[in-house]
Computed example of a mutant assay.
Amino acid sequence: MASEYLSGIFSLQGKSAIFTGATGGLGSALASAFAQAGASIISIELADDPLSADLKSKIEDVKGKITQVHCDLRNPKSLRDCYQSIWESGAEPEILVNCAGVMKRNPCENATDDELDLLLDVNVKSVYISTQEFGRKLLSLKRPGKVINIASVTSYQAGFNTSVYSSTKGAVLQMTKAFSTEWASKGIQVNSIAPGFMKTPMTSQYQDNQKMTDYLMMRVPAERWGEPQDLIPAALFLAAPGNTFTTGACIIVDGGFCGK
C-alpha cells in the first residue's frame, strides 16, 4: 500500500507537459525525465532548431510521446498563436516548464542594445507570455495546474559580466512569486528552480577554462560542475501530483554555491 501511494504521488502517467527550451542541455534532460515518468511532451521550438531531431529521438528512446510545435519565442503573437493551436489540438493544460534561455557575457559598460533585447525577449518576455497563456487556459477551465520556471543562481548573486543575464533571471524569480500569489487560490502552482553552474552547451567555453574551473572549485562546496540530471528530482517534485501546497518557491540546485 505504501509503495503504491509513493509511486502514485510522484507519477506523471497520463499528464501532458508543455516545454519551452526542451532542445537545450537542461531542457532535454528534464523533458526526457518527464517522459519516463509518464508525461506526454509538447515541445515549443523554432522550426529550424538543429537539435529538434535529437530531442525527438531522446524522448522516443525512453518510450515517451512527443509533439513538436513551432514558433518564435521572441515574437509575442507567434507564441500566443502557438498556444491557441496547442489547445485546438485537444491538449490539456497540466504542466508547463519554461526552460528556454540565452546568455551573453559583457561588462556592464559594454552591454549592447541587441543583447538587452535578446535576453529580455527570451528570458523574461517569453516566460511571462507562456505562463500567462497557460494560466489563462487553466482559469477558463477552472482547473489546477503547475508551472516550473528555470531561474538561476544569478537570480540571487550577480557575477562579473552577467549584468543583463542576472537582471533577466532576477525577473524570473519575482515573476514566479507574482503569478503564484495571484493564482494560488485557484490551485495553480508556480515555482522555479535555480540551477548553479551546469555542464551544458551554453557553458562549454567555461568548462574548458581552467581558471574558471579552479574558481568554481573554491566557490562550490560540492567541488564539481552540476549536471543537467541534478535538476530532475527538484523538477519532478514540483510537477508531481503529490505536491499540492508548494507555490512561489525556488529550489536552488547549485552544490552549495549560494549558501557559502
Results as ranks from 00 to 15, higher is better:
residue 200 T to H: 09
residue 15 K to F: 11
residue 134 F to S: 07
residue 117 D to R: 05
residue 88 E to V: 03
residue 205 Q to V: 12
residue 255 G to N: 13
residue 69 V to T: 10
residue 241 P to F: 00
residue 253 V to W: 03
residue 196 G to K: 06
residue 174 Q to F: 11
residue 249 A to R: 08
residue 111 A to C: 11
residue 157 Q to I: 13
residue 51 L to V: 02
residue 236 L to I: 11
residue 146 K to V: 08
residue 167 S to E: 06
residue 234 A to N: 09
residue 130 S to T: 02
residue 249 A to V: 01
residue 88 E to P: 13
residue 61 D to F: 10
residue 204 S to A: 14
residue 30 L to R: 02
residue 51 L to C: 10
residue 159 G to D: 12
residue 6 L to A: 02
residue 35 A to Q: 05
residue 109 E to W: 06
residue 21 G to M: 10
residue 243 N to H: 13
residue 54 D to C: 09
residue 76 P to D: 11
residue 49 D to S: 15
residue 31 A to F: 05
residue 55 L to C: 08
residue 7 S to Q: 10
residue 144 P to G: 08
residue 12 L to E: 02
residue 38 G to H: 09
residue 108 C to Y: 12
residue 125 K to S: 01
residue 176 T to Q: 04
residue 46 L to G: 05
residue 150 I to H: 03
residue 68 Q to A: 07
residue 71 C to D: 07
residue 59 I to Y: 11
residue 122 V to I: 15
residue 224 R to N: 04
residue 150 I to A: 10
residue 100 A to N: 13
residue 113 D to W: 07
residue 73 L to A: 06
residue 236 L to H: 05
residue 40 S to P: 00
residue 192 S to Y: 03
residue 259 G to K: 15
residue 186 K to I: 06
residue 115 E to L: 03
residue 221 P to S: 05
residue 6 L to I: 12
residue 180 S to R: 10
residue 141 L to G: 04
residue 237 F to G: 11
residue 81 D to P: 08
residue 218 M to S: 14
residue 212 M to F: 15
residue 193 I to S: 09
residue 256 G to C: 05
residue 59 I to A: 08
residue 11 S to N: 01
residue 144 P to Y: 15
residue 171 A to W: 00
residue 128 Y to E: 02
residue 57 S to T: 14
residue 37 A to C: 03
residue 88 E to L: 12
residue 90 G to N: 03
residue 157 Q to Y: 15
residue 117 D to Y: 07
residue 122 V to H: 10
residue 163 S to F: 13
residue 154 T to M: 14
residue 74 R to Y: 03
residue 190 V to H: 07
residue 26 L to H: 09
residue 257 F to R: 09
residue 175 M to I: 02
residue 35 A to K: 04
residue 238 L to N: 02
residue 142 K to G: 04
residue 96 L to D: 08
residue 153 V to G: 08
residue 132 Q to C: 08
residue 152 S to L: 08
residue 209 N to P: 04
residue 38 G to N: 09
residue 83 Y to W: 12
residue 156 Y to E: 15
residue 217 M to C: 01
residue 151 A to W: 11
residue 246 T to S: 11
residue 237 F to W: 13
residue 42 I to P: 02
residue 201 P to E: 06
residue 251 I to A: 05
residue 121 D to P: 01
residue 91 A to K: 07
residue 218 M to L: 14
residue 219 R to W: 12
residue 69 V to P: 01
residue 26 L to A: 08
residue 21 G to W: 03
residue 220 V to N: 03
residue 187 G to M: 04
residue 149 N to D: 03
